[in-house]
Design a binder for these strands. Structure first.
Lengths: 104, 104
DNA sequence: TATTTGAGTAACCACTTGGTTATATATTAT
DNA sequence: ATAATATATAACCAAGTGGTTACTCAAATA
């Protein structure tokens, strides 16, 4: 649990995707996050750490509560990688591709 | 190497992303694919199997050659999951979101 | 001050992952 | 027919993953 830590790997785990989904709506402390899953607090703590390490969330301490905030801009890398293959499932590519290309 | 096999996990591995990138350009047999990586043929064979199992590639046998063809429409699921968070890195969201919503 | 609460960490565990080498099978070439 | 080639599979292995329980520490509360 120490090595290769990138966005693709971070979102490969369904629990971590669910965590992202939750805190994208509103910041939550670890206890609130853990309350929604059938696993222990330490397990969630580890997921949070992984998400933090690749920049997908940031922690804001407020007393003893550690609030997790979504900071999903590092998903951009994954989005761009996937969207380059958009033609494989989307016919209305042209207009979209132009938009995407104007982003950077 | 038997269980949970989904698109997110399939693209989590950098070697598999590179394989996808190669065969998205043109179908290649396993030997050609393996030639680009510093790992053995059996290792590539396993990656190919994983990609096949989640539908990202299909194999077309031509004599003793097994040609890998990209069939990346199952990336759509991952694309949609990621793109729902596009607002985290993209300001020009409105026009894009309209486009994406028209897709389905 | 003593106790409870939220979170992190350490040590551990079973399973998975990505790799290896050796072997088998089918197809092509000599 | 024999040899070479392309691929798959089996058996194995080290390291990584996702989880656990037990413990510690800091902050809030009684």
């Amino acid at each position: 649990m120490e090595t290769r830590r990138d966005v693709f790997q971070a979102i490969a785990d369904p629990t971590r995707r669910a965590i992202i989904q939750m805190i994208a709506k509103e910041p939550l402390n670890l206890k609130s996050v853990a309350g929604h899953f059938p696993v222990s607090r330490p397990a969630i703590s580890k997921h949070i750490r992984i998400l933090t390490e690749c920049g997908l969330i940031t922690i804001h301490k407020q007393g003893r509560d550690h609030y997790c905030n979504a900071n999903l801009s590092s998903l951009r890398e994954a989005s761009e990688w996937i969207n380059q293959y958009r033609k494989f499932w989307n016919d209305k590519l042209d207009a979209l591709e132009n938009l995407l290309n104007n982003d950077h």
